[in-house]
């Protein structure tokens, strides 16, 4: 066996024994470097008989190529081993929050108002807004609430000092004045929902606040009936509180609707069998509603013999308290981060 053959046979063991890229580099120098046997043989080719040169040259190249391939295989292996070793050292405890995210949260009242609005938007309603300081005409007179009505007393309604005293400027006690303004500005058909802030002369207790929110809805067209009101509220109850909810309408009295009703929904927590959420009644009182009183249509310039409509209104805080089990209305206005952080 000549020298070249010996090198070719010994190279794999030599290369395999290299345990680092550095050692491999040394093996490469030894096998293929300037002073290696192979390099010497190449340099010696010129001294050979020209007839032998191609055969010997081919032989040298064959060994060279084989060693080179062997080296680069080993290099790839060692690179992976060395990187793996590095990664082991780079291990961290990913459960330590080295970088904290700081996303803010959406207020639950906004979430509920948007959610309720969107349910009606999906039925083709628009969303309307209006002034919070309102005239008594829009808040009461236009809504068939005569000047003698007790709701207009200072014990129920907050008044402000602005403009002509004859206008009786007040903090709207309901979002309904927006309905009146909307009807004045738009011809029927009307499909509108009005979320917003309202005010009453109520001292703070667990369920009352002088500042709270409502969402009201109004539909007016040439063929709107009590059946439309009932179907719409059923749709709302099932979308907001879940499929399977049933509603009941109980006759009630409001100045701006006739007939009027209170809408109760079967308790979502106990499915009507009675629990703490529904005070063991199986039902949750949710909103007032009814067919728009003809006097309201006349006040805003609609002809009550040509159009009919329904309206409904619900308290946003009450919806949120019932659905999420919030215990006191103050939690909506203290903006305690420990409360805000519970809702996104």
């Amino acid at each position: 066996m000549d020298e070249l053959q010996q090198i070719a046979q010994g190279a794999p063991a030599l290369i395999g024994a290299a345990q680092s890229l550095e050692e491999l580099k040394a093996v490469e120098t030894e096998l293929l470097g300037k002073n290696s046997v192979i390099a010497q043989k190449r340099r010696g080719l010129g001294a050979l008989d020209p007839a032998d040169r191609p055969t010997v040259g081919a032989k040298i190249n064959e060994v060279f190529t084989a060693i080179q391939a062997n080296l680069s295989d080993r290099q790839r292996q060692l690179e992976i081993i060395e990187e793996n070793a590095l990664l082991v050292g780079d291990r961290v405890d990913v459960t330590v929050p080295h970088v904290r995210s700081q996303f803010g949260t959406q207020h639950i009242l906004t979430t509920v108002m948007d959610e309720v609005s969107d349910i009606f938007v999906s039925l083709g309603y628009r969303v309307a807004a209006g002034p919070e300081i309102e005239t008594a005409w829009y808040n009461f007179d236009a809504l068939n609430t005569p000047s003698s009505h007790p709701a207009r007393a200072e014990s129920d309604t907050l008044y402000v000092d602005f403009g002509d005293p004859a206008d009786e400027m007040l903090l709207r006690t309901q979002t309904s004045p927006v309905q009146a303004r909307y009807m004045q500005q738009h011809e029927p058909p009307v499909h509108v929902v009005v979320p917003g802030r309202v005010f009453r002369s109520d001292s703070l207790d667990a369920t009352h606040s002088p500042v709270f929110h409502q969402v009201e809805g109004l539909v007016v067209d040439t063929d709107i009936t009590f059946a439309d009101l009932k179907g719409t509220l059923e749709y709302f109850a099932r979308t907001f509180f879940g499929a399977g909810r049933v509603i009941k309408l109980i006759p009630h009295f409001f100045p701006f609707t006739e007939p009027s009703a209170e809408m109760h929904v079967s308790c979502f927590a106990c499915d009507g069998s009675g629990c703490r959420v529904c005070s063991n009644s199986g039902w949750i009182e949710l909103m007032g509603c009814g067919m728009v009183d003809p006097n309201v249509f006349e006040a805003v310039g609609y002809d009550p013999s040509k159009v009919s409509g329904f309206a409904f209104g619900m308290g946003v805080e009450r919806l949120a308290m019932v659905r999420h089990g919030i215990t006191h209305i103050k939690h909506f206005f203290e903006n305690d981060l420990r409360v805000l952080g519970q809702f996104v």
Binding site: S117, H191, D228, K230, K248, L249
Partner: peptide
């Protein structure tokens, strides 16, 4: 009121405004 049928009317051109 329990004996009334139900129907759901829909509006034609609702939706949120750009501003909303």
């Amino acid at each position: 009121f329990d004996n009334f049928p139900s129907r759901v009317p829909t509006g034609g051109n609702g939706g949120l405004s750009v501003e909303q």
